[in-house]
Amino acid sequence: MELRFFLKQLILPPGGFFLLILLAWLCWSRRPSLAALCLLLGLGGLWLMSLPVVVEQAARWLEREPALVEAQWPQLAQRAEVIVVIGSGREEADPAWGSDQPSATALERLRYAARLHRASGLPLMMSGGLHYDQPPSEAAMMAEVLQRDFSVPTRWQEERSRTTWENAEYSAALLREQGIRRVVLVTQAAHMPRALWCFERQGLDVVAAPLGFLGVANARPLGGWLPEGKALWQSTRLLNEALGQALYPLLYR
């Protein structure tokens, strides 16, 4: 897990671009042409990935599953047996709360799942293991927030997974014990294609319930051609999804 974390930090932005800039500095005196290329790629990559317009276009390529319109929510009970929410990390030791809390992305998923639950009456399952091997599990944190802040109970918690593939594998195992094979899956729109692929490989019938679409009009000045920090963070998540969609079929069968 630690090796995977460090590799992602080195490869994904901004780490990979900083390495290119460092390489340019190291090569400047001996290989000026290579150094100039590395500097151009490093600075140019940072600029491009900090543009909201780039986020918007990249998300349109990745967000392939349509949203569930609200009129469809009550009919989910005829199409599925449980709502599964995938974890999305945590915020560490926030003094305002006195404990670790689900990330902002996870809270988006919980809010959406609570609305789907109230509209359909379907029970909920949280899926997420230990974050960097530190308890409590993401599933336990999400279940607590769902109960305390949304007054919605969680029936099942899958607390072993560390990857999207394991979310699917371990969730499917728990659900099979209950005779359940039809699920509503809640996660970000860009993450949904990879998550859907994983859950269907476990023999589950999946209704996709994506949220957090980024492939919409960015509503920024100058059409989103001014760089901003939020866009760099969003671009990094989208690049992570693009790599995941390409690599998962090679890593998992």
Rank of each mutant, 00 (worst) to 15 (best):
M1V: 14
M1A: 03
F6V: 14
F6K: 12
K8F: 04
K8L: 07
L10K: 06
I11G: 07
L12M: 14
P13F: 02
P14M: 08
F17R: 10
F18S: 00
F18P: 00
L19A: 13
L19Y: 14
L20K: 05
L23H: 07
A24K: 05
A24F: 07
W25E: 07
W25R: 06
R31C: 00
P32K: 04
L34Y: 00
A35L: 04
L40Q: 06
L41K: 00
G42A: 10
G44C: 12
P52G: 02
V53A: 08
V69M: 03
A71G: 02
W73P: 06
W73S: 02
L76Q: 10
A80L: 01
I83E: 09
V85F: 03
V85S: 05
I86P: 00
E92S: 05
P95C: 08
P95W: 11
S99L: 06
A104I: 05
T105F: 07
T105N: 03
T105H: 08
A106M: 02
R111Q: 10
A114Q: 11
L116K: 05
R118G: 06
R118Q: 15
S120E: 14
L124Y: 02
M125E: 01
M126C: 05
S127H: 08
L130G: 04
Y132G: 01
P135G: 00
A140W: 11
A140P: 01
M142E: 09
M142G: 03
L146G: 09
Q147Y: 14
D149F: 10
F150N: 01
F150W: 07
T154A: 01
R162Q: 15
T163S: 15
E166H: 06
E166Q: 13
E169F: 12
Y170W: 12
S171G: 01
A173K: 12
L174I: 12
R176L: 00
Q178C: 00
H191F: 05
H191E: 13
M192E: 06
R194T: 14
Q202F: 00
V207K: 07
V207D: 04
A208M: 03
A208I: 10
L214H: 12
A217T: 11
N218I: 12
A219C: 09
R220D: 09
L222D: 07
G223F: 06
G223R: 11
L226T: 13
L226N: 05
K230Y: 03
A231D: 04
L232I: 10
W233C: 02
Q234K: 09
Q234R: 13
R237M: 15
N240P: 02
Q245N: 08
A246L: 09
Y248M: 11
L250R: 14
R253A: 13
